[in-house]
Write a protein that binds this DNA or RNA. Structure first.
Lengths: 197, 197
DNA sequence: CTTTCGACTTACCGATCGGTAAGTCGATAC
DNA sequence: GTATCGACTTACCGATCGGTAAGTCGAAAG
């Protein structure tokens, strides 16, 4: 709605994101990305100088969406702090379920940035984690715990959400789509049990 | 102890595992693996016909260790079924913390096998998941729940364990090693809260 | 002493990679 | 009408990839 005509750069980002998410940085060539748009790889090099720059733009795109989740949660009216945590849990779950590519790419980043570490890339994650922990700490169930316990519980939640989101295809192959659909339906309540009692 | 002289093949597997875990299938060349042993890539091709075969052997190696966890848990004496689940939780946590490369590679497999899917590779995972869910279902806390809920809770646990295990380096970069050490110490109790009340 | 054989190596191959350089081409500005 | 410019394309490059083919070489077997 806001962008009826996405810019050329954005089109490349949108095309590259699911490819990087599914096959990883080294598993995707510039020709692959350009080919999907029926262009040549040189068009990418024209807009982004290098492959790394394209990848960085994709990561930035996801970071923006993660920030969006936090903004929505923090802007929501909530008399009680536990309502805000509950909204956070639901929005995180819904986002990763509806955009599993985001979860896939974030997870790959987590795995890859041992090597290809640019310090800047981690600060969006830091802000996200810090705000998440703060939300957790504001809930009566966790308020009395130590910071380490609060952080552990937060990361336990985030890990569960992302891991389940990236496991969809494999679980479907193992158990079939129908059963996975049932598990998916049971997942949010199970998460809320853990986080907001 | 059992293998004071690991076979040549096993040496390649042991060398390749952390490389694949850290950089992924496409991020590691045969020359990289062989170079660490001061051999040429041809020596790998001699022992394993293709790169895929080497990778498959590495996955098999991990599958064996996962089976080992289940075997230990199932063989342990336990009057009450909840003791067995508790042992499972502790062993899984300890294994993934002490061998984060295993968690890293399993997670990469989960991400990659959209493309490079050999059906055989998933059945070790199926057995592992099925036994895990069965352990969960045997515990009073979960016995009354539906199969979907039991599975969701199981996968929530596994996801949290693996995700935390692969996040070590990133979390250390964000918060520093000391704080991550505290979080690590708080993680197992938090897991047990969720799984075995 | 010779043969065999497992465990390698050197030499080489075609394909593909990211990236450079130098155009092409339609739309807009003046 | 011409100059400019953004958005591409074609042509090409060196490096690296996985894999084939054909040796080499020390130890064990006869």
């Amino acid at each position: 709605m806001l962008k009826p005509v996405p810019s050329a750069k954005q089109k490349f980002i949108d095309t590259a994101l699911p490819l990087f998410a599914d096959r990883g940085y080294f598993g995707v060539s510039l020709a692959d990305v350009a080919g999907e748009l029926k262009l040549t790889k040189q068009s990418i090099i024209y807009h982004f100088r290098t492959k790394d720059a394209l990848y960085g733009a994709v990561i930035e795109d996801i970071a923006t969406r993660l920030d969006g989740i936090l903004d929505v949660v923090m802007a929501a009216p909530a008399e009680r702090p536990q309502d805000r945590l509950d909204l956070y849990v639901r929005n995180m779950h819904d986002h990763m379920q509806s955009k599993p590519q985001d979860a896939r790419l974030i997870t790959r980043e987590l795995l890859d940035n041992l090597d290809r570490t640019e310090t800047g890339k981690r600060w969006y994650l830091k802000r996200f984690l810090d705000v998440s922990v703060a939300l957790m700490a504001g809930h009566p169930k966790w308020a009395g715990k130590s910071p380490a316990e609060q952080t552990a519980a937060t990361y336990q939640f985030i890990g569960a959400v992302c891991y389940f989101a990236i496991s969809g295809p494999t679980l479907s192959a193992i158990w079939g789509k129908d059963r996975v659909q049932e598990i998916r339906a049971a997942f949010l309540p199970t998460l809320r049990d853990q986080v907001v009692s």
